[in-house]
Simulated scan of single mutants.
Amino acid sequence: MKQIMQAYAKHREVSAQESVARVCGLPLKKCSRTVIFVQTDEDGLKMSLPLSRLKDMGPDEEDVWMSGLPDKYENRPATGDFNDMCLADFASGCRVLYGRQTEGPNAVPLQNDKGFVQKRTQGKSAIIRFTRFSEKKQPEKFYRRLLKLYFPHRTDDELKSEYYPTYEDFYNRGRGGSVKQYVDFNRKRYEGQGKKLRRR
């Protein structure tokens, strides 16, 4: 009786379709679009370089973290479309290249040896995900996320100024109010599309 109970407790029924997919090694889930998480928080998680590289570094070396998507964005080329691109555009419109992919004809080198990217093909832009903060409970993090994602910048210092010391001030009054217009325009392009997709 105990064996029968364990069989029910530890096993589950599998449909014929799922069992065929598992036996044939087919993926159970497939998506036509890539989904990318974009870190916008100052206290975001960072991964250290591999131990093999850390051993070769000096004890006073401070650059021990792997570069993430925001770092690559800040080191994007200062030419053409890249210059006026916000982080959301960069994340959804470009993909990071590794290994032999960097030798391809469409590989674009980033500044400061931060790697290579390639523009995605037309109509295949990635879906971006990000942490959502409450405007009432965490206003600084909320406005930082908006500025970080939707306002073109090269460093985080450009998202504030001495005249507008908070992210909220810079969002509302920066550059004569043009920051808010620019951010809101880009935000509409990326946020609020989920409801439309669910209805279809």
Rank of each mutant, 00 (worst) to 15 (best):
M1R: 12
Q3H: 10
I4W: 12
I4K: 10
Q6E: 15
S15R: 05
A21N: 05
V23T: 10
V23P: 00
K30P: 00
C31T: 13
V35M: 03
V38L: 00
V38N: 00
T40V: 09
D41I: 00
D41G: 01
L49V: 07
L51A: 14
D56T: 13
M57Y: 10
M57V: 03
G58C: 08
P59Y: 03
D60C: 04
W65P: 03
S67Y: 13
S67W: 14
P70W: 09
Y73Q: 01
Y73F: 15
T79F: 11
G80V: 11
F82K: 00
N83K: 15
L87D: 09
L87F: 12
L87C: 05
D89C: 05
F90W: 11
F90R: 09
A91Q: 08
C94D: 02
T102V: 05
G104H: 03
A107V: 05
A107R: 07
L110I: 02
Q111K: 13
G115W: 03
K119M: 12
G123F: 10
K124W: 05
K124M: 05
S125E: 14
S125D: 15
S125F: 12
A126W: 13
I128N: 07
T131F: 06
R132D: 13
E135L: 11
K136R: 14
K141D: 11
F142N: 09
R144I: 01
R145T: 10
K148L: 03
Y150W: 13
H153Y: 14
R154I: 01
D156T: 10
L159P: 02
E162D: 08
Y163K: 14
E168Y: 04
D169F: 07
Y171H: 06
G174R: 07
G174C: 05
G176A: 06
G176K: 09
V179G: 04
Y182H: 11
V183E: 07
R187K: 04
K188R: 14
Y190H: 04
Q193F: 07
K196P: 00
L197E: 06
